[in-house]
């Protein structure tokens, strides 16, 4: 392990990354609290923040920024196969082309109406 003998400390870099991660977490929480006009916008913001945080952790904490090209050899195929599952499920489950008959919906609207009538409290 002689290559570690004169290792330079990354302490300050790690601390900066840590602070960035905290700021990102705060952004997600604030985005939820301020009640943005659209749910879609909220989803886009928090997922973008999650991706940014993930990249920070992978690049610095997991040292991927400093690793050589083998990281692509390992991570690209896994990512492709991982994405294959949701993509292959989507056509039938995520977005069906037929009209679904959903048993639990049968008298649910009735409940919604009565809840609204009571002033929407459970």
């Amino acid at each position: 392990m002689s290559e570690h003998e004169h290792h330079e400390s990354h302490g300050s870099t790690y601390f900066k990354v840590f602070c960035t991660l905290c700021v990102f977490t705060a952004i997600s929480v604030v985005a939820d609290i301020v009640h943005l006009p659209s749910k879609f916008l909220l989803g886009a913001i928090v997922l973008a923040v999650a991706v940014a945080k993930a990249l920070c952790v992978m690049a610095y904490f997991m040292h991927l920024k400093f690793e050589r090209a083998w990281k692509y050899l390992l991570l690209v195929p896994t990512t492709i196969i991982a994405l294959a599952i949701p993509i292959s499920l989507r056509p039938d489950i995520g977005a069906s082309y037929y009209v679904q008959d959903i048993p639990q919906l049968h008298d649910y609207p009735e409940h919604e109406a009565s809840v609204a009538h009571q002033g929407g409290h459970h």
Binding site: T78, A82, I85, P86
Partner: peptide, 16 residues
């Protein structure tokens, strides 16, 4: 790498 596939399966099916 296998763990990425494991959790993406759950998260992906949840989204779908």
């Amino acid at each position: 790498g296998t763990e990425i596939m494991f959790f993406t399966a759950f998260i992906g099916t949840y989204i779908v």
